[in-house]
Design a protein around this nucleic acid. Sequence first.
DNA 1: CCTTTCTAGGAATACGTTTTCCTTCGTAAG
DNA 2: CTTACGAAGGAAAACGTATTCCTAGAAAGG
Lengths: 342, 342
Amino acid sequence: MPAPGPDLKRPTIRDVAALAGVSVGTASKALNGQGKLRAETRDRVAAAARELGFAPNVLARGLLAGRTFTVGVITTDSFGRFSIPVMLGAEDALGAGQISVFMCDTRDDPERERQYLDMLLSRRVDGLIVAGRRIEPRPSIGPTLGVPVVYAMTQSMDSDEPAILPDDAGGGRLAAEHLVALGRRRFGHITGPPRFLAARMRARGFCDAIAEAGLPFTANDVLYGEWSEAWGREAARLVMHTSPRVDAIFCGSDQIARGVSDTLRLIGCRVPEDIALVGVDNWSPMVLGADPPLTSVDMCLEDIGRVAAEHLLLAINGEPGHGPHTVPCRLVVRASTGAGGP
Amino acid sequence: MPAPGPDLKRPTIRDVAALAGVSVGTASKALNGQGKLRAETRDRVAAAARELGFAPNVLARGLLAGRTFTVGVITTDSFGRFSIPVMLGAEDALGAGQISVFMCDTRDDPERERQYLDMLLSRRVDGLIVAGRRIEPRPSIGPTLGVPVVYAMTQSMDSDEPAILPDDAGGGRLAAEHLVALGRRRFGHITGPPRFLAARMRARGFCDAIAEAGLPFTANDVLYGEWSEAWGREAARLVMHTSPRVDAIFCGSDQIARGVSDTLRLIGCRVPEDIALVGVDNWSPMVLGADPPLTSVDMCLEDIGRVAAEHLLLAINGEPGHGPHTVPCRLVVRASTGAGGP
DNA sequence: CCTTTCTAGGAATACGTTTTCCTTCGTAAG
DNA sequence: CTTACGAAGGAAAACGTATTCCTAGAAAGG
């Protein structure tokens, strides 16, 4: 067996205490501002710690405190487009509280999920965030784990567990209100498969807002398909064929919008002059790469992560949350709904 | 199924030992397959552990072993398109060795980097992976940290530290050889800014391979610009204007290729019949969303992460690596260079 | 001068494991 | 019947820190 490297032993509080000429207990108190010590002693210990480059061993501290100041984030999304911003937001909110994050990617495999869960529990994480790429309820990760759990971008079938979700209906509403305000009157909505709750919610919000404005567009007019550019291209032809006078299209994703935009240009339809286009996701490479750049509904995934982390911190401190909680979306306006129009 | 139930305290090995009627030392040996014990005793302890849902406290174990079985991954890429696959690969290779990963995103801020570094060191990680989004040498994260470090998708200015890098020149070569084999003879290369080492390396590999095939294309013919679709659109017009007989274009990224593809279609140029198109990154939403789907050079970022992790494991076991090490690319052929041609 | 009251700091304990050393017991060899 | 030996398992130390309790000495009060 190979020897364990150039063993640069990190200094312990024992070394600090020895250098400062005090006991370990005293050194600990000095470094943590506890107990009754002379200022001179405190300074001496601090100087010794600095000289040795001492950093307390978080394991030892955690062992004693019964807390590890770590949380686990379990995602089914392969660190994909949805869970990444969520994680970023969560890490942000947790890092500020000196909490570190174990990130685990289950790749949608329940066996891997169980394995990671065991691992996190034996590492004694203080809490757990379960992130997903779909908002549909999923089987609970474990009803009585002994640590608080918050779901983000997904929810537990056991509806009592706290979950932070995007406001998909609100996003659809936002798009509709924007288009109505621009003076558009004849709408289309091209979106993903109807089995996706998010697709149905966005459609509902969109329809409701248009109905409230007294304009015509019903749930029957929604075109459900795939979350792909190809579907966007195909559906655009469909729309232009069946309702040639349409002047605004709301797409369920930026990718679909991208496909729609492509087809519109090919058939000589101008964006935004003839048709205003709104996507969902505000996914930079898509919205900025498109020509013209796309107006898009931003789900504020980072906020979802941040809010989830805040709820988790509360739960860790003994104030558990309950049930689902939505985070509002935000509309980012770009040239695809810019000046100009009928 | 381990169900700790309502008793909030997780069971310790002490509880297991008591239930099995043995001492803690014996329980430990039984669970770890150490020492000399009767098979009956081993079974009894195992049964007790199962009944209580016991999972050993990794902190306590680590404290004793002087290892934490954790590593830190520090990225400057905001968990972006480049570092994600790298992390995924690293997590994969490390998870198999029962090692968990602390992921940290510095957002390119040296101050945050220092902070995360301190955090990781006080958590006593066994090693460190530093990931980036550019392969250019960066300042060393710390020459004498006391823990092994491996750079992935970036390298240290102190050239002795181990770094795992993509073979950008090889990627360019791969594209050239593919196009030459298809019978193409007049080439274009549209890529990102020349200050990017990756852009220069890919261009060099591309030029070299074409020269070796006895065909005309020199470093002077390379069009440097931005990593954007807009640049792709612009450059395509440029190429078609200055060298209208070109029959193959290699793009430095899928986004650029996407822009090129758009323009070619608009000016009535068919892909791949008139012009074969190759991108770099093999980034799904881009290559699959394009029409036709793009042939692309895959940098195998997951492999880079995996190899980095393997090197790190070796270093942790006392066999440190040295200097840079490249991982080969892979060409994924799709319709944009498919059947058909001049 | 003797007792009480602070004060500064030391000693010990606990956290949950693993590992090393030691004890006990049964059995076989002399 | 002793002695030696192997098997099975117990007791204790160790990891690094925070905390609780305790003590030595000094200051203060009588």
